[in-house]
Design a protein around this nucleic acid. Structure first.
Ligand SMILES: [Zn+2]
Ligand SMILES: [Zn+2]
Ligand SMILES: [Zn+2]
Ligand SMILES: [Zn+2]
Lengths: 149, 149
DNA sequence: GTTGACCTTAGAGTAGACTCTAAGCTTATA
DNA sequence: TATAAGCTTAGAGTCTACTCTAAGGTCAAC
């Protein structure tokens, strides 16, 4: 049985975060000492490591909650449910990558157009582009798509 | 002179957002009616459009504040200051893209490994991978790099 | 028996960019 | 003149995932 700081050391999460996760239903200690100290079993540790791994991949705490409820009763859930969560996350990631690549392209175009030197900004082509609004961009398009869900 | 809702219609920002931007020093109305209604001049409109464009590209409100202070007095600023802001944003964007691509790769590997069908999740390889923590990932590496700044 | 490290809780604070509410004026139109 | 649309403000709420604080209880060691 591990105390909270031991679990923290083992998982790389902080004790604060572990309590926060407990408050949000992700991980709780199977046992408490008479004084109320949390004591984590081996099974709790495995659950915490699952959470850590899923979080590292980029799953939201909400996604992780869903994965955890599948995990505790695998016979009531299908592979499809697992891939649905995973695919949904992948869709989000792909969408964000597109947005960022659009920004990246725009920023590169802006940087290419400006000398970047000690000259006064009076004729800076970046400032001109921003003033004229003629900067290619698709961020809003993506944002709107995002909200249609 | 435009009222706030007219400027909102023209820029695609909401009246709420325009007031919020004013509170944060980005855009304010040059004039007010005797009753206190905001009245925006042509120059205010151009400033608002600048903000909109910069925001669409992905600049933070803080970045935009800096760009605006260059904009109002270009003779006191250099192209280099403009490119510094732009390059810094580009660095952030590149960093985020890397993180997301790492997630993307991991998620794709997971999806490839699972049948995604109606089978029980008892032997789901995604669940197994999460349980074993053997999922390639670099998100934390990126996070740490981010914080070193 | 006291020091110091560790534990508990409820609850507040953080970041970024809005988003909305309440309560009350103002203005244009019918 | 009445109705509705639109404007004002301060300030609270939203979202995510923590992060920290205050005030106090516990425990092993010396
Ligand atoms: Zn230049
Ligand atoms: Zn320039
Ligand atoms: Zn399967
Ligand atoms: Zn599966």
């Amino acid at each position: 049985m591990l105390k909270i700081s031991e679990l923290a050391a083992k998982t790389g999460l902080t004790a604060h975060t572990l309590r926060f996760y407990e408050k949000n239903g992700l991980i709780s200690a199977s046992n408490r000492s008479p004084a109320g100290y949390r004591y984590y079993t081996e099974s709790d540790v495995r659950r915490a490591e699952f959470v850590k791994t899923a979080r590292n991949i980029g799953f939201s705490l909400d996604d992780i909650s869903q994965l955890l409820s599948i995990r505790v009763d695998k016979t009531s859930h299908s592979c499809q449910e697992v891939t649905d969560i995973t695919r949904h996350k992948l869709d989000e990631v792909n969408e964000k990558i597109k947005e960022l690549q659009s920004m990246q392209q725009t920023l590169n175009i802006l940087l290419d157009s400006c000398c970047g030197g000690p000259e006064l900004a009076t004729q800076c082509s970046i400032m001109e582009a921003l003033d004229e609004g003629e900067v290619r961009n698709q961020r809003n398009k993506h944002k709107k798509l995002e909200k249609q869900k």
